[in-house]
Amino acid sequence: MIVTVTPNPSVDRTATLEDFRRGGVLRASSTRLDPGGKGVNVARALAAAGTPTVALLPAGGPEGDRLAELLAPEGVPVVAVPIAGCTRSNIALVEPDGTTTKINEPGPELSLFELAALEARAAQLAERADWLVCCGSLPLGVPSDFYARLVRLARGAGAKVAVDSSGATLAEACAAGPDLVKPNLDELVELAGHPLPRLGDVLDHCRVLVGGGVGAVLVSLGADGALLVDQANAWHARAEPVEVRSTVGAGDAALAGFLHAGARGERALLTAVAFGTAAVALEGSRMPKDVHTDAVRRIDVDESLNLSGAAAWTPN
């Protein structure tokens, strides 16, 4: 079983626009309402693929109730920690070419009691989980070492841990030695503290993280696929281009695909890219159901690098 932890879930409203003009009156051609939050999306994609999963999250107010209602038809079991605040709502504006503008609310502040309850439920679920997957931003009142603490708790319970976050939260989690981290390119650059303009630079910093105790690094590269680096190998994979309808949740789908396929090696990477590519072809933050790796190809990393370790490849 894979348990996802989403400390700051949301109800996501997506509006598809024919034209985006700042300061204008914008009319939506269609709208969607989806359960949201990175860990929630991972659980949705896992459930759609038939992988047993549980979504752990704090929930409060009408939007908290709505979130559970939206997840029920998707077959995602929810363990909700009641909170006094109201679960947040996010808005995504999608242009015809797939360009997405997101407006994310900060979310409710968690009390020390609510935070302790969330941590305790995570520790309990980790005792019967294969993976504990910690995803997304932290709400107000949650210290930046929260995921690092969960890494240690889950390890003690015998579960592997994946972390998908950013900033100080990701940095502190990396120091705790998770089995997997899944940054996108921007998040990896922030973690490195300097630009990573070429594939060789990305690869080098992934190896720094692995050398520091992270089990593996899965970097989503948008249209350029993904890079996987572990202690022994590095793989790069890319899919054939598709029509982009929405990029919301694509990285979450990729992480779900990676876990669904066993969370190690080339096969898992190809599946991750296939899941992420399938997600961008869907409206809103819908998660893919029918996913195939036929259109994904593995690229030999050495073909993109010269002998000095610099890269001839640059991100799109």
Rank of each mutant, 00 (worst) to 15 (best):
P35R: 04
E95S: 14
A122V: 11
V219T: 14
D252E: 05
P73L: 07
A120C: 08
K102A: 12
A168M: 06
I83M: 12
G222E: 00
L307W: 10
V25N: 09
P108I: 05
P106Y: 05
V94G: 06
D230I: 08
W235H: 15
L138C: 02
A126H: 09
A157K: 15
A59S: 14
G64A: 13
C135K: 03
G212K: 14
W235I: 08
K289V: 06
F258W: 14
L185M: 04
G213F: 09
N184L: 03
K102G: 01
L269T: 09
L153V: 09
L115E: 14
L93M: 12
D97P: 05
A272C: 10
P62D: 09
S29G: 07
V3L: 02
A55C: 15
D65L: 15
R128K: 14
G167D: 02
G309L: 05
F146R: 10
G215E: 13
L70H: 13
T314I: 07
A49L: 09
N184W: 03
C135S: 11
R264D: 14
A116K: 15
V301F: 08
R66F: 11
L46D: 00
P62S: 11
T247V: 13
S144R: 12
N90S: 14
A162Q: 00
I2G: 01
Q231W: 06
G61H: 10
W235V: 06
R152Y: 02
L118A: 07
S29V: 14
W131D: 10
E187I: 07
G23E: 13
E95N: 04
S29E: 02
P288L: 06
A129W: 12
R21C: 02
W131P: 05
L269N: 07
R13H: 11
A47G: 02
A49P: 01
S246R: 13
L115D: 08
L305V: 13
T87R: 12
R264M: 10
G193Q: 10
A279V: 00
N316W: 04
V5T: 13
L203H: 04
L282Q: 03
A122I: 05
P96S: 10
V161P: 09
L188E: 07
E243Q: 08
A175I: 11
E266L: 15
G36V: 01
P143L: 12
R207K: 11
V217I: 10
G167V: 14
S111L: 08
V25Y: 07
L57S: 10
G158L: 08
P82V: 11
W235Q: 06
L191G: 01
A312H: 09
C206N: 05
V40D: 05
L57R: 08
A162P: 08
Q124H: 08
P82Y: 10
A120H: 15
S308L: 11
R88V: 11
N8I: 09
A176D: 02
L196A: 02
A310V: 13
A59G: 12
P108C: 04
H292W: 03
L227H: 13
V81N: 04
E105Y: 01
R207I: 02
E95G: 06
A48C: 03
T101P: 02
L282R: 00
R128M: 12
V214Q: 08
S137H: 07
H292R: 14
N104G: 13
V142T: 14
H205D: 12
G284S: 15
A256I: 07
L56D: 06
P143E: 12
